[in-house]
Amino acid sequence: MSKALNLVIVGVGGQGTLLASRVLGSIAGQLGLDVKLSEVHGMSQRGGSVTTCVRMGETVHSPLVEQGGADFILAFEELEALRALPYLKKGGSVIVNTQQILPLPVIIGAEKYPEGILTRLRGECETIALDALPLATKAGNARAVNTVLLGRLAKSLPHEKALWHRALEETLPPRFLEANLKAFEAGYAL
């Protein structure tokens, strides 16, 4: 079971969490592993919290990563990282984009956006915080935040970089590839 890897990818509907999971699916394919992804379609895509699970290993039955089961949480937004924290396995890591997107109850003043999220995360687990948006913009595509995060994830995993490059080539439309490869490298270099 040493090859088994469970990830939870969280963010806000529309942030591109599905693309990140497909790249990971391609990695599993190249490694010859069984793999399942659980995606969110429909209502939650309208700016709600979204959770995507990726599981790979010798044999995978359930497509879901549950509480205490994730080796990594890849969070596109701080509040969503905190919400997803119970999914983390003991010894697991959170990779979090330091963007904050205010949910509607906060916008209308009914609730408050929590303070000190990174401190709370750091108190619980290895927390890798990065500001992915400027890196993505510098790489040539502001929407490549997901690839910056994947680059940082790749650095924490033992697989060769060539595997990731192939996964990006398999998953992305060719016209977006160059900027995304740069974004990946920017994340990897952190």
Binding site: R46, G48, S49, L79, R83, P103, L104, P105, R120
Partner: peptide, 10 residues
């Protein structure tokens, strides 16, 4: 974490 703000679809 208790009482986190919900993020409903909008």
């Amino acid at each position: 974490t208790p009482n986190l703000p919900q993020r409903p679809p909008v």
